[in-house]
């Protein structure tokens, strides 16, 4: 493994746009997103359903639906711009430079091949070794991700594994080639809470061991707290707030982030009556609201008269001189800071 930890991040995404042409019009699933992840670090991406999280990550591996799709911007993975690179280059990078862990390990594993065979295949794509050697490696990996009796389990089929074990197997397969970048798209959503915590621990341990960069996509701010270093909050295909976990979750500056925090059941206390889901529905990406896409649902929106919220699209701006904390909102910094404190006070109560 390379030991570069500072300097250029392993992954750098700049102004990434993914637009799908459909019969109803252009779906702007991702509309100008920038972020970067260093080796050994984890970036959490949060947002409601349909905010473009999966499309963003699939695009990095070139796994999005290519039909009638326009991808623009830059996404440098270990120095190669995967947006501009030819298909064959990206295909060769998959599994080795960047690997992916999917949400539902039952449908994501091939039902007719044994777990062992699937891992062996993944290993042999990038290592010219015999099947026996690869099988040994598969058993090793299963053992490493905490699957008991790996010698026996390696011969079994996905349907013979429990949900948690399946996700461990999926992780073993994704990590078999020591990938530099791991993208996990809601890897624990399909699992129950205890298993979820175990899987996140496992990912954290493996990350220390392999020094890889991780993107963790989730709906769940709890997951972010547990595993991420940085957070990107997405709304309607764009980033609305970005910063370290400490900054975004302890000093949130965007009304949407406030909404997310308010709708999380408090970890301590029984504040269920205070639980307020964000009113309204996520925007249609076919027809994103003008100005700030969040304005139809925002309790602080300035709409009447000269109010800019429905007219001008806010760009990401630095918060309180903290260079890596940025937010896209027309509210003044002072107002945001006050409300932020109130929100956190309530969440902590």
């Amino acid at each position: 493994m390379s030991t570069v930890t500072t300097g250029t991040p392993y992954l750098e995404v700049e102004d990434l746009k993914v637009h799908f042409k459909t019969e109803d019009g252009i779906v702007k699933a991702v509309d100008g997103v920038s972020f970067s992840v260093e080796r050994g670090k984890t970036l959490g991406i949060v947002g409601e359903s349909g905010s473009g999280k999966s499309v963003t990550s699939l695009t990095l591996l070139g796994l999005h639906n290519m039909r009638a799709t326009t991808v623009t911007g830059r996404a440098s993975v270990g120095g190669t711009d995967v947006v501009a690179a030819p298909h064959s280059t990206v295909q060769k990078m998959r599994g080795k430079d960047m690997a992916m862990i999917f949400q539902d390990p039952l449908t994501a594993l091939h039902p007719y091949y044994s777990i062992g065979r699937q891992i062996v295949e993944a290993y042999r794509i990038h290592h010219k070794v015999s099947k026996e050697v690869a099988l040994k490696r598969a058993v090793e990996m299963l053992d490493r991700v905490g699957i008991p009796e790996p010698q026996r389990r390696v011969k079994q089929y996905p349907h013979e594994f429990s949900g948690g074990m399946r996700q461990r197997a999926m992780i073993a397969m994704a990590l078999v080639n020591d990938p530099d970048l791991i993208i996990a798209d809601e890897p624990t959503t399909a699992l129950d809470v205890t298993v979820q915590a175990q899987i996140l621990d496992l990912l954290g341990d493996l990350q220390k061991e392999f020094n890889s960069a991780i993107i963790m996509i989730t709906h769940d701010l709890g997951v972010i707290t547990q595993i991420a270093d940085d957070v990107l909050v997405m709304y309607g295909g764009r980033a609305v707030e970005k910063g370290t976990v400490e900054q975004v979750l302890r000093k949130p500056h965007h009304p949407y982030t406030w909404g997310l925090l308010n709708s999380v059941p408090s970890l301590h206390g029984d504040a269920s009556e205070d639980l307020k889901p964000i009113p309204g529905n996520p925007p249609s990406l076919l027809n994103v609201p003008s100005g700030c896409a969040f304005h139809p649902r925002c309790a602080h929106a300035m709409l009447g008269g000269d109010g800019p919220c429905a007219k001008i699209r806010p760009e990401l701006e630095v918060v309180q001189g903290l260079k890596n904390h940025t937010v896209a909102c027309h509210l003044s910094e002072a107002v945001r800071a006050t409300i932020s404190d109130e929100v956190i006070e309530k969440v902590d109560a």
Binding site: G95, Y112, I125
Partner: peptide, 26 residues
Amino acid sequence: DEDFIRTSRAKGLKDRVVFWRHALRA
């Protein structure tokens, strides 16, 4: 369109192999 086909592509398999092995088998 199945998830496991996407997985096999994510592993780095060539499209040809994904089609003639994984998809045909399924």
